[in-house]
Amino acid sequence: MIKVEGLTKRYARHVAVDHISFEVAKGQIVGFLGPNGAGKTTTMRMLTCFMPPTEGTAEVAGYDVIQNPMEVKRRIGYLPETPPLYPDMEVAEYLDFVSRIKNLPSAGRQARINQVMERCAVADVRNKEIGKLSKGYKQRVGLAQAIIHNPDVLILDEPTSGLDPHQIMETRDLIRELAGDHTIILSTHILPEVEQICERVVIIAKGKLVATDTVANLTTNLRGAETIALEVIGGDEASVRERLDRIAGILKVTTVPTDGRVRFTIDADKEKNVRPEIARAIIGSGWELHELHGVSMSLENIFLELTSNKEAA
């Protein structure tokens, strides 16, 4: 559905996006992940024909963004980081305006507007001025605007930024619901969001592509190590540490500062199942084993690792 090859945006003084290539299949939800200023918005703006790329090509639904921008625009719904709303307009009026400039035929337009308002849960404020709505409502009106012409591709730039936790959940649910009908690219710097909604991740940092894979693959394959959390009562830190060091397969032990207790984070070889060994060692030394569990490698760690590795290289 989306095919990006060597996409580059160069400004007078710096390169915002540097030869990015990736593909998105029909119906997928792809998370566009990167720190602020990584080039997420610029890439999205090139995909939506807001600005032309300096180099490279991007195809949306089979149409090139430079050769056929009109066809691309017809098939894309775009929610920029700040929803493009006219504060003086009423919600229904605004959606009517958008449906007209998106070339929705007049037959069935009103029905479609009603349907979209229901779907985005903004029907109850249809006659309210947009400027007077809460941020969550504004965001949903922005989403309604993006889907009104039933586009093949939805591009959402930080759809949950600036919302409160309740609104964030609502927005995520809505995006997940929309996934069936549309191919979605959403950008974010919030990692759990990607884990929750997206099937694939495209990670970029400093304008360069760092990784692109499914969320599952990224979390399992990236490191050969597993992380274990351990809490012991009854032993002092040095002796527990000394005991742990004798277990084969433990790569690194870090003390987690807590008052009164002894906590550690342990990096261990994934191949050797060290947890029973640790349990035996603690009990055998006469201490109390208070907590022992595996910490799943979060996308956050992967992300930090990937982006900092890139920096080092």
């Binding site: 939506t48 807001f50 700040t82 493009p84 709303l85 958008v98 400039i101 070339n103």
Partner: peptide, 13 residues
């Protein structure tokens, strides 16, 4: 300033 220009430019206009 308000970003609505993005709506206009990314619409088939």
């Amino acid at each position: 300033r308000t970003g609505t220009i993005e709506l206009l430019i990314t619409s088939p206009l």
